[in-house]
Design a binder for these strands. Structure first.
Length: 883
RNA sequence: GCCGGGAUGGCGGAAUCGGUAGACGCAGCGGAUUCAAAAUCCGCCGCUGGUAACAGUGUGGGGGUUCGAGUCCCCCUCCCGGCACCA
């Protein structure tokens, strides 16, 4: 055995051996229970970053643990290879996105392999390859024919200078990232997935996912946003014609308090009103400036303008003004809202700003109670004062409006026949009256919108549609698929370069044979990442999208990925699974049984501002920070510190793990990443601490080396032990228990590692070279090495081979007999404060424990001879004496 | 703005079901070894007072429930993620 721990040597040897013997090949034909462990596949951005290392190490720990437990494990890997950064790189370096992407994949594959992940590389896939996206195009045509995919107009960010659609990320402070031009909203035709048709199932399906974090399910449920309300109409007359303005509201009980209605700038009524109203037209044009991102819409100043139009209140017949409001979203509900300033925060702010009437129609519950109590009489002085205080707020004033709009348990007032009704009763009564007038009905409304997938970009999966002047939008027939994306294109940032490629665009109509044009839009990259998990089961199948193996491996037993994917990616993948199920391609309802959302790896950001106001971001590795501030290493000039954020390409704050691997080896990088923070928490990167992880591995190596030098010995197999060895064995088996539980149930690896560290510290203190002690040491070392194997597989394998030559490393078993304790230590509290300890036999009764506690010196000191008020005994833990 | 999450020593974090706050590691300090250094080994290490024993205090801030709160409830502050064309 080597005396020194040489990571590069043992890691290389282990990896070569794993590859040669196909150790991590998932068996399609095995009868052992399957365990499909999937980590979210990477975007091939260039090099691995720490987030990848964290993600894949978590997956690898779980995969290796289950393999040691006898499962037939599948851990695949692939590349989410289409996307915007490849086009940006192309523009910056004048290389085709394809070449850039393939080079990145090759480099990152090497890096992943150097980390020693137990990946079945025979299943590798890349979404930019025709043999993958071909089936996505095939499914698209099927769904298009079924009507699950349809075409409609939708709003995008438009850069008028570059004449191109911008991603939200490319809009910076309302301007295009390259041109600096003010961004406009523009309506263009797009293809949509009818995800709203599955809204109810996507919502109720969350209940069938006990293995998902609560927070993720809550986020998804809120995103789907099912609300029960009333869709109702305000009749109006326009251009001499009778019409209706429809709105959706969850607060129909406040209908009698409506003082105006507001429509979105894009609403047809606004457009019509603006025809002969230049001021309104100008205001609408202003609303159409800026990005389409919801966050921008929600944080901008609420503005509006009276259209001059009036609608009729459906129940009172009152005339109500129609406003255009920049805060009304065309994409939600009807694109119009009824405004009740007295009981809605946003309406209130708007009414205050434009001096619109505010009409109270709900009385708060506490005010009602106070009025009742005073009327009934017999109040104490204090009670009366309380009631009066409540009533002092009962006059509606703008300063006190929160009391009114926040009130959920109020009743209707000043609402005619609805006075005195609570929320449910009022909504029911009003909905019934509206229905009788044919002016409304109860309706379920989702916040979820249909999924627009058209992207006016080159580097994506082509949408398989052909435009024919006589036949219209024709899906490409299956036998003509795939529609192959040419890979020799270099985009220039101004529009989709496919439009300039006659060899791509020109084609003939599959129906009539006439000359036709190919769609040049590509699909949202979320489409590729919505079904890759299923394709891993049969990546080489060329007869269809999936074969029978999909149902052998699915559902995924453990999915691991960043919390930033909690809503969109995971919702789309769940949706796609249901689409594939309804096509008869997969059997189950949900794709991922257990989900682990790792926290982000965050790091400092540094930037400089260019003369045109753009920010240029610098990598932390290229920056030195000291008392004088942050400076760029290359030129010594200062840079601005931008705060600690998620490691990302756009902020250029990713830390390259390669240096770590080169200096300390993969095991150290893996160990440190798992040890630094629990998986679900965000991990602030710092280089300090890596040294400690490496030191631990060196110590482990040294202890094993010294033990092995002493000659062969069998692991402890039973019999009486001296006290020190017995205690160590108890700790050993407690550690096995804890590490198993930490990995399998808690999925918290930092504490598992800490427990093994404690064990090693104890083992280092165990003296004695007699045969018995050595046999206990052998047992402990074998177990410790096996417990660490999921985290640090290379060193574990090397050490196990030295400790127990020729044996296969299995997960250690707990010896229940070793766990038995004779005496237990109880904490002694007096009035909840720790005052001492007592030792009691493990078999002691509650009475005996109590007696021992009261008899203790500490208790006597605080009792001062008096009997205790109360004694609380927590079994196995503590005694609290209340004096 | 809306939805979700977080805050514990100088730092990363532990405390799993309301029961010893600070495990484990980093940094620091002291010592051993060494010609010296690195490496390694041993010890100390929340804060305040005290030579010490010990006492008080302490989990972002304020309030509450409880014999007992880092953990549960209410209010607030700050930080992070998502917000539908970044992936």
């Amino acid at each position: 055995m080597q005396e020194k721990y040489l990571p590069s040597e043992i890691e290389h040897a282990a990896q070569v051996q794993w590859t040669a013997s196909q150790t991590y090949r998932a068996r399609d034909d095995s009868d052992r229970p399957k365990y499909y462990c999937l980590s979210m596949f990477p975007y091939p951005s260039g090099r691995l970053h720490m987030g990848h290392v964290r993600n894949y190490t978590i997956g690898d720990v779980l995969a290796r643990y289950h393999a040691m437990r006898g499962f037939n494990v599948m851990q695949p890997m692939g590349w989410d290879a289409f996307g915007l950064p490849a086009e940006n790189a192309a523009i910056a370096n004048n290389v085709p996105p394809a070449a850039w992407t393939y080079a990145n994949i090759d480099h990152m594959r090497t890096q992943l392999q150097a980390l020693g992940f137990a990946i079945d590389w025979s299943r590798e896939l890349a979404t930019c390859k025709p043999d993958y996206y071909r089936w996505e195009q095939w499914l698209f045509t099927r769904l298009f024919e079924k009507g699950v995919i349809y075409k409609k107009m939708a709003m995008v960010n438009w850069d008028p200078v570059d004449a191109t659609v911008l991603a939200n990320e490319q809009v910076i402070d309302g301007r295009g990232w390259r041109s600096g031009a003010l961004v406009e909203k523009r309506d263009i035709p797009m293809y949509f997935f009818r995800i709203t048709q599955y809204a109810d199932e996507l919502l109720s399906g969350l209940d069938s996912l006990p293995g998902w974090p609560e927070r993720v399910k809550t986020m998804q449920a809120n995103w789907i946003g099912k609300s029960v309300g009333v869709r109702l109409a305000f009749p109006l007359e326009f251009d001499g014609k009778q019409d209706k303005l429809w709105v959706f509201t969850t607060r129909a009980d406040t209908l009698m308090g409506v003082t105006f209605v507001a429509v979105a700038a894009e609403h047809p009524l606004a457009t019509r009103a603006a025809r002969d109203n230049p001021a309104l037209a100008a205001f609408i044009a202003e609303c159409k400036q800026g990005s389409v991102a919801e966050a921008d819409m929600a944080t901008m100043e609420k503005k509006g303008m009276d259209t001059g139009l009036k609608v009729t209140h459906p129940l009172t017949g009152e005339s109500i003004p129609v406003w255009v409001g920049n805060y009304v979203l065309m994409s939600y509900g009807e694109g119009a809202v009824m405004a009740v300033p007295a009981h809605d925060e946003r309406d209130f702010g708007f009414a205050q700003k434009y001096d619109l009437p505010i009409k109270q129609v709900i009385e708060a519950g506490d005010i009602r109670e106070a009025k009742k109590a005073i009327k009934a009489g017999g109040l104490t002085e204090k009670g009366l004062a309380q009631c009066e205080q409540v009533l002092s707020g009962s006059q509606f004033t703008p300063e006190r409006w929160q009391v009114w709009y926040e009130e959920k348990n109020g009743v209707c007032v000043k609402s005619g026949k609805y006075d005195g009704l609570d929320y449910t009763a009022a909504v029911d009564a009003i909905a019934a009256d509206l229905a009788a007038l044919n002016l409304g009905e109860k309706k379920i409304q989702f916040r979820l919108r249909d999924w627009g997938i058209s992207r006016q970009r080159y580097w994506g999966c082509p949408i398989p549609i052909i435009y024919c002047d006589s036949c219209g939008d024709v899906p490409v027939p299956a036998e003509q698929l795939p529609v192959v994306l040419p890979e020799d294109v270099v985009p220039d940032g101004a529009g989709n370069p496919l439009n300039k490629r006659a060899d791509f665009v020109d084609c003939s109509c599959p129906k009539c044979g006439a000359p036709a044009r190919r769609e040049t839009d590509t699909m949202d990259t979320f489409v590729e990442s919505s079904w890759y998990y299923a394709r891993y089961a049969c990546p080489n199948f060329d007869g269809g999208m999936l074969d029978a193996r999909a149902n052998k491996w699915l559902p995924v037993d453990q999915y691991i990925g960043g919390i930033e994917h909690a809503i969109l990616h995971l919702l789309y993948a769940r949706f796609f699974h249901k689409l594939m199920r309804d096509e008869g391609l997969v059997a189950g309802d949900e794709p991922f049984v257990n989900l682990l959302t790792q926290g982000m790896v965050i790091a400092d950001t540094f930037y400089r501002e260019a003369p045109d106001g753009k920010k240029i971001w610098f990598n932390p590795a290229d920056v030195v920070v000291d008392e004088s501030g942050a400076r760029l290493k290359s030129d010594g000039q200062p840079v601005i510190v931008g705060g600690t954020e998620k490691m990302s390409k756009s902020k250029n704050n990713g830390v390259d793990p390669q240096a770590l691997i080169d200096q300390y080896g993969a095991d150290t990088a893996r160990l440190f990443t798992m040890f630094a923070a629990p998986p679900e928490q965000s991990l602030e990167w710092s280089d300090a601490g890596v040294e400690g992880a490496h030191r631990f591995l060196k110590r482990l190596w040294k202890m094993a080396y010294e033990h092995v030098q002493g000659g062969a010995v069998a692991a402890f197999a039973g019999g009486e032990l001296p006290e020190a060895a017995k205690t160590l064995r108890r700790q050993l088996h407690q550690t096995i228990q804890k590490v198993s539980d930490d990995i399998e149930r808690r999925k918290q690896f930092n504490t598992a590692i800490a427990a093994v560290m404690e064990l090693m510290n104890a083992l280092a203190r165990l003296d004695g070279d007699d045969a018995t002690t050595r046999s206990v040491r052998q047992e402990a070392l074998e177990a410790a090495v096996a417990l660490l194997a999921p985290m640090v597989p290379h060193i574990s394998e090397a050490l196990y081979a030295e400790l127990k030559p020729g044996a296969a490393m299995a997960w250690p078993a707990v010896d229940e007999a070793a766990l038995v304790q004779d005496e237990i230590e109880f904490m002694l509290q007096v009035n909840g404060k720790l005052r001492g300890q007592i030792r009691v036999a493990a078999t002691a009764t509650r009475e005996a424990i109590e007696a021992a506690a009261l008899a203790s010196e500490a208790a006597q000191k605080y009792l001062e001879g008096k009997p205790p008020k109360k004694v609380v005994v927590v079994p196995g833990r503590l005694v609290n004496i209340v004096v």
